[in-house]
Amino acid sequence: MIGIAERHQYILNKIQQHGSLDVQTLCKELKVSSVTIRKDLKLLEDKSLLYRTHGGATLNNPYIVDRPVNEKELLQATEKMQIGQVAAKLVEENDSIIIASGTTVLAFARNIQPVETLTVVTASLNVALELVHQTNVEVIQLGGVLRKSSSSVTGPYAEGMLIESYCSKLFLGVDGIDLEFGLTTTNALEAHLNRQMIAASQKIIVLADSTKFGKRGFGRICGLDKVDHIITDRGISEVMRKGLESLGIKISIV
């Protein structure tokens, strides 16, 4: 059995090569228990050499910070458009849906082409502006305090409007998806509004590119038990996909 210094060097070499790793693979390769590997990862994290995640570790900080919406829109733009195209196929005739805020749900809104009447409740100014010119779409814009970084509203006015509504589907954008911590965003008020959207919806559909997995934002929205369907891209890891599917969540990969 190799010593602790050699194990640590092996782990660091592997994470430098792949960007992330999982505990079970390290257990097999190093022939030690998961308890030993988790202790190793804790020591390496204490030295600021990596970040621990659920079931493994990564070189990238999993704790995300808020960015302006115009900056976010440039990130993973192709993947977001593909996710939006798949999500648009889930909109049914005479549907009533909620669209939350974020650049991935904005890509979804740009792909909506309803044949019959569609009612859309949204917190996002950009989503409302995208759909307002479609003759078959009735847009209900939630009111409240405007968050400039996301061009969306939060607060009790928006939450109060949702209490009087019930829709078939919520299309939700998030900043982080973690198997233990659930869905998160960078803003606590937005997270609270998202919870009200979930309460007002029959089905919860999360639209998230693969960079969102294994990350956590400041505001927790809900546990993964609330989620019915996640649409993402091919960058999702096999470990994460299997973990989500084991919770009964449908995963669509574009």
Rank of each mutant, 00 (worst) to 15 (best):
M1C: 04
E6A: 15
H8Y: 13
Q9N: 14
N13H: 11
K14R: 12
H18I: 01
Q24D: 11
T25L: 12
K28M: 08
K28A: 14
S33T: 15
T36R: 03
T36C: 03
T36K: 01
R38K: 05
K39D: 07
K39T: 02
K42D: 01
S48Y: 01
R52P: 00
H54E: 13
G55Q: 01
G55D: 10
G55A: 04
T58R: 15
P62R: 04
V65P: 00
L74Y: 07
I83R: 05
V86K: 10
A88E: 05
K89H: 05
V91P: 04
V91T: 11
E92L: 11
I97L: 09
I98E: 08
T104C: 07
T104K: 06
L106F: 09
P114T: 08
P114N: 07
E116V: 04
T122W: 09
V127K: 00
E130Y: 08
E130M: 14
Q134Y: 11
E138K: 15
V139G: 14
V139T: 13
Q141T: 10
L142N: 09
L142E: 09
G143K: 15
G144P: 08
G144S: 12
R147S: 12
K148T: 13
S149G: 02
S149F: 09
S150D: 06
S150M: 10
V153A: 11
G155A: 05
Y157P: 02
A158W: 04
L162D: 06
L170K: 09
L172S: 02
L172C: 02
L179C: 12
F181V: 15
N187D: 15
N187V: 11
A188C: 05
E190W: 08
A191Q: 08
A191C: 06
H192D: 06
L193R: 00
R195E: 10
R195K: 15
M197T: 04
M197I: 10
I198N: 01
I198D: 02
A199S: 12
Q202H: 12
K203S: 11
V206T: 01
K215G: 05
F218D: 06
F218P: 00
G219S: 02
R220S: 01
I221S: 03
D225M: 06
D225Q: 11
K226H: 10
H229R: 15
H229M: 10
I231D: 07
D233T: 13
G235T: 14
I236A: 11
I236R: 08
R241K: 15
I251D: 07
